[in-house]
């Protein structure tokens, strides 16, 4: 019995279908529990944030990426290292704002939506909103306040999936009084 899932024996990699389906089950449950899509989006973002806050630890430990000096470097690390490590895709970084504080991640394939069709009555649901929360939470832990949102989504008929990221400010580290 040869099966594609036996491709890698790398213990760090696992069947992504499990992740995709589990995420789907979660979104389904949220849609049952909440009246409107806005609430579901909010919940997904919140959960993503919780994941991001933890995931950054795992990421820094495994990738040996140091501190980023500017937002461009951050964008590169997110696209080329983080997305690759966790989702196995490499989004392209485009649409820089003149000030260099905003960019877009273009995902040509989104692993979260492999088996998904949005029904008509969920037109405002941002299915992959968890990702926004993850990015926000992770960057907050490295002293960066960012605003993350989906600008385009293939699920809603756009050609590509686009995540727009905007740098807000650097979070100052406040040492507790009397701490050396």
């Amino acid at each position: 019995m040869s099966r594609q899932s036996n491709r890698t024996t790398d213990s760090k990699k696992m069947n992504s279908e499990l992740f995709t389906l589990t995420y789907g089950a979660l979104v389904t449950q949220l849609c049952k529990d909440y009246e409107n899509d806005e609430e579901v989006n909010k919940q997904l973002d919140k959960m993503g944030y919780n994941i991001g806050v933890r995931l950054i630890e795992d990421f820094l430990a495994r990738s040996s990426v140091g501190r980023c000096h500017d937002f461009r470097e951050t964008a590169d690390v997110i696209a080329k290292v983080a997305f690759k490590m966790y989702l196995g895709i490499t989004p392209s970084v485009t649409n820089w704002s003149p000030a260099g504080d905003e960019f877009s991640l273009i995902l040509e394939s989104n692993p979260l939506v492999d088996f998904v069709e949005l029904p008509d009555n969920h037109s405002t649901l941002v299915y992959s909103n968890l990702l926004c929360g993850v990015l926000r939470g992770a960057l907050e832990m490295v002293q960066m306040a960012v605003d993350v949102r989906f600008a385009q989504d293939t699920l809603r008929g756009d050609n590509v999936t686009e995540i727009r990221m905007k740098f807000i400010k650097r979070i100052e580290e406040n040492l507790p009084v009397g701490d050396e």
């Binding site: 990699k13 696992m14 959960m47 692993p111």
Partner: peptide, 22 residues
């Protein structure tokens, strides 16, 4: 290929959510 850590965190988050909802 989604990373395993991702599933672990998601699984944990699902548990937290369901727990809070109930």
């Amino acid at each position: 290929m989604a990373d395993e850590a991702l599933f672990q965190f998601l699984h944990h988050e699902v548990i937290q959510y369901v727990n809070a909802a109930e």
